[in-house]
Design a protein around this nucleic acid. Structure first.
Length: 246
DNA sequence: CGCATGGCCCTTA
DNA sequence: TTAAGGGCCATGC
C-alpha cells in the first residue's frame, strides 16, 4: 500500500463509527440449522468466512484466522436458504485467507451442480494442474466454508465417495439428500463403468450428469475409460466435461 | 478384481 | 529451508 492510500485509510477511520471499524476487524458468529444438523458459521463484512460443526468452533476459527469473534444476534441475510438449498444465490463468501491454488480448487468445486459428483482428478484438470490430484484433496479438506462450497460433491475416480470434513457418512447423507444416486454409481463402479454414453446423441458423460441420467436403457453404453468411449465414436459431454478428467 | 505401491504437488510444522 | 504427509490415482500382481 502506498503512503497516500495509508493516509487516506487513516482519515476514513477517523470519520467512521467505532462499531463499523470493529466489524471490519472482527468476525461474528451464529449457530444455524444446516442440511445435516446444526453448524456454526463465522462471517465478516466481506461475507461468510467459516463453517464448522460442533465443538471446537471458536478455537478452530482463531487458530486459522486470528481475529476476534463475537456472537451475532441473527444470521446474515441469505445464509439459511443457502445452507438449505445448496445454492449461494448471491450470498458472499470471504475467502481472503485462502491461497491462489485453493481458490481455484474451490471455484471449480462450486461449478458442480446439486445432485451430481465429479472426481478429484477432474478438479485438478479443470484448474490446469492435472497432476495435482492429491493437492486438490488437501485443498478441499481445508475448505473453510463446507456446504456453501460443495466440496462434498467431489468423489473418487473409482466410484468411492472419499473423505470429508464432516466424515464420509455425512458426505453420503448429503449427496443422497441432494438426489445423487450413489448406489447406482457404486453398482456401475462394480462393473468398472465410470462413463455413460448415449448412442442417440453420441455423447459420453459422467454417470451423475443430468444428461446421463436421461439416457434410455436401450441406448445406454457404459465405458471404463474416456479413451474407450472416444474410440467407440462418442464425444465428451459439454456440460459435465469428462474430457478434463482424462 | 482387490490390494499394495510409487508418484505427484501443495501446505504445514 | 526442508521434509513429511494428505479427502488421490494408475498401475502391477
Amino acid at each position: 500500500m502506498t503512503e497516500d492510500r495509508l493516509l487516506a485509510g487513516l482519515a476514513a477511520l477517523a470519520t467512521d463509527a467505532p462499531d463499523g471499524l470493529f466489524d471490519r476487524i472482527a468476525a461474528r458468529w451464529v449457530r444455524v440449522p444446516g442440511p445435516v444438523g446444526e453448524v456454526r458459521v463465522a462471517y465478516t463484512d466481506q461475507g461468510i468466512a467459516f463453517v464448522h460443526d460442533g465443538p471446537g468452533f471458536g478455537a478452530a476459527f482463531r487458530a486459522r484466522f486470528g481475529r476476534p469473534l463475537l456472537p451475532a444476534e441473527r444470521p446474515p441475510a441469505g445464509l439459511l436458504p443457502a445452507l438449505r438449498t445448496g445454492r449461494l444465490n448471491g450470498l458472499r463468501l470471504d475467502l481472503r485467507d485462502v491461497s491462489d491454488f485453493q481458490r481455484d480448487v474451490l471455484r471449480a468445486a462450486q461449478t458442480i451442480p446439486r445432485g451430481e459428483v465429479r472426481p478429484y482428478a477432474w478438479i485438478a484438470a479443470q484448474i490446469g494442474r492435472p497432476r495435482a490430484v492429491r493437492a486438490v484433496g488437501t485443498a478441499l479438506a481445508r475448505n473453510p466454508v463446507p456446504l456453501l462450497i460443495p466440496c462434498h460433491r467431489v468423489t473418487r475416480s473409482d466410484g468411492a465417495v472419499g473423505e470429508y470434513v464432516f466424515g464420509a457418512s455425512t458426505k453420503e447423507r448429503l449427496l443422497t439428500a441432494e438426489g445423487a444416486d450413489l448406489d447406482r454409481v457404486r453398482e456401475l463402479a462394480g462393473e468398472r463403468v465410470f462413463y455413460l454414453a448415449s448412442d442417440t446423441t453420441g455423447v459420453v458423460c459422467f454417470p451423475t450428469c443430468h444428461n446421463a441420467r436421461r439416457i434410455t436403457p436401450a441406448h445406454r453404453h457404459g465405458f471404463r475409460t474416456l479413451a474407450q468411449a472416444r474410440a467407440a465414436g462418442y464425444r465428451p459431454c459439454r456440460v459435465c466435461k469428462p474430457a478434463l478428467a482424462a
